[in-house]
C-alpha cells in the first residue's frame, strides 16, 4: 500500500514537470499550429541560468532556490520571446517551415549548451529539506515531489486565471478557436503569439530549475528528454487544450511510474502504447476539439 502511495505521489510530481513543459507546447500549438521542438532548449537554458543565479546566493539555500526559479522563468520567457520574434514571425503562416526552424534551433542550441557547459551532467546542491523525504499515508515521499506538485498547480492556476480574466487571455482563447476571425475583428494576433511563447517559455524555464532539484543534476540534454514525453502528453491531452495537458500529464506520469515498478521498467513503452491507443480511438486527443 505504501509503495502504491509512493508511486502515485511521485507520479503526480513527475506529471507536474511534464505539465510545465506541455502547457506551453499546447498553448503554442493551439494558437499558432506550431509544434515547438525548441521548447526543451528553453527548459535547459532556464535550468542553467537559474542555477547560475542560485549559486550567487547559495544553491543549497531557500533564497537561492527562489531566485533560481525566478531567473529560470524569466530566462525561459526571454529566450522564447526572442525565438518567436526572430525566427517564427518572419515565417508567418508557413507552419512546416516554422516547425523546421524550431528543429534547427533545438539541434543548434543543445550543441551550444554542450560547448558552454560540457556534455556531461553536473550535480547540483539542494536545500537540505529537498534531499529528505516526508512520511505521507505510510509512504516516504521525496520532498521534491511536493515542490513539483505545488509549482505545477500554481502555474496551472496562474495560466487559467490569465486566460480567463485578461484581454490577452480572451484573445488567446478566441485565437485557438479561429485565428482568422480574431484578425477580422481588428486584433493583431501576432502580439498574442509572442505572448504565448513567452508564457510557455517561462513555464518551461521554471520546470527546468525544478527538474534539476528532482534529478539532482543539470545537463544540456535534460530538455530534450523531457520534451519527448511532453509531446506525448500534449497529443494525448488534445493539442491546444490546457486542461487536457494537465490531465494527460498526470495520467502519463503515474502510468509510467506504475509500469516501471510493477511491469519490469516498461513505463516508456506503456506510454507509447497509450499514445497509439488514444490516437486510434480519439485522434483529437482526450480533450481536443479538432483533429490536427
Amino acid at each position: 500500500m505504501s509503495t502504491l502511495i509512493l508511486l502515485l505521489v511521485t507520479g503526480v510530481g513527475l506529471g507536474g514537470l511534464y505539465f510545465l513543459v506541455a502547457s506551453g507546447l499546447s498553448l503554442i500549438y493551439g494558437l499558432m499550429g506550431i509544434l515547438n521542438f525548441a521548447h526543451g532548449s528553453f527548459l535547459t537554458l532556464g535550468a542553467f541560468a537559474g542555477l547560475a543565479a542560485a549559486s550567487a546566493v547559495g544553491q543549497d539555500t531557500w533564497g537561492g532556490l527562489a531566485l533560481g526559479l525566478v531567473v529560470g522563468a524569466v530566462t525561459g520567457a526571454a529566450a522564447a520571446a526572442v525565438t518567436e520574434l526572430g525566427l517564427i514571425r518572419p515565417l508567418y503562416e508557413r507552419h512546416i517551415e516554422q516547425v523546421l526552424v524550431t528543429v534547427g534551433l533545438a539541434l543548434a542550441s543543445v550543441a551550444l549548451f554542450e560547448g558552454i557547459w560540457g556534455p556531461n551532467p553536473r550535480t547540483v546542491r539542494r536545500t537540505e529539506w529537498l534531499t529528505r523525504t516526508t512520511e505521507f499515508l505510510g509512504a516516504r515521499i521525496p520532498n521534491t515531489a511536493f515542490l513539483n506538485i505545488l509549482a505545477a498547480a500554481l502555474v496551472l492556476g496562474v495560466i487559467v486565471a490569465f486566460l480567463k480574466y485578461t484581454r490577452y487571455g480572451l484573445i488567446i482563447r478566441a485565437g485557438v478557436e479561429n485565428r482568422a476571425m480574431v484578425t477580422a475583428l481588428g486584433i493583431d494576433v501576432r502580439t498574442a503569439f509572442t505572448l504565448v511563447f513567452a508564457v510557455g517559455g517561462a513555464a518551461a524555464g521554471l520546470g527546468g530549475v525544478l527538474a534539476t532539484q528532482s534529478l539532482n543534476y543539470v545537463s544540456p540534454h535534460m530538455g530534450a528528454s523531457l520534451l519527448i514525453f511532453a509531446f506525448i502528453v500534449t497529443v494525448i491531452g488534445g493539442m491546444g487544450s490546457l486542461p487536457g495537458a494537465a490531465v494527460a500529464s498526470v495520467v502519463v506520469a503515474v502510468l509510467q511510474q506504475l509500469a516501471n515498478y510493477f511491469l519490469a521498467n516498461t513505463g516508456d513503452f506503456i506510454v507509447v502504447l497509450l499514445l497509439a491507443l488514444v490516437l486510434l480511438v480519439r485522434p483529437s486527443g482526450l480533450m481536443g476539439r479538432r483533429a490536427a
Binding site: 525566427l87 515565417l91 526552424v101 534551433l105 539541434l107 543548434a108 550543441a111
Partner: peptide, 13 residues
C-alpha cells in the same frame, strides 16, 4: 552541430 543547425535555420528562412 551548432554550425549545422544554424546553417539549416538560415536555409529554411
Amino acid at each position: 552541430m551548432f554550425l549545422l543547425g544554424t546553417c539549416f535555420i538560415l536555409v529554411v528562412m
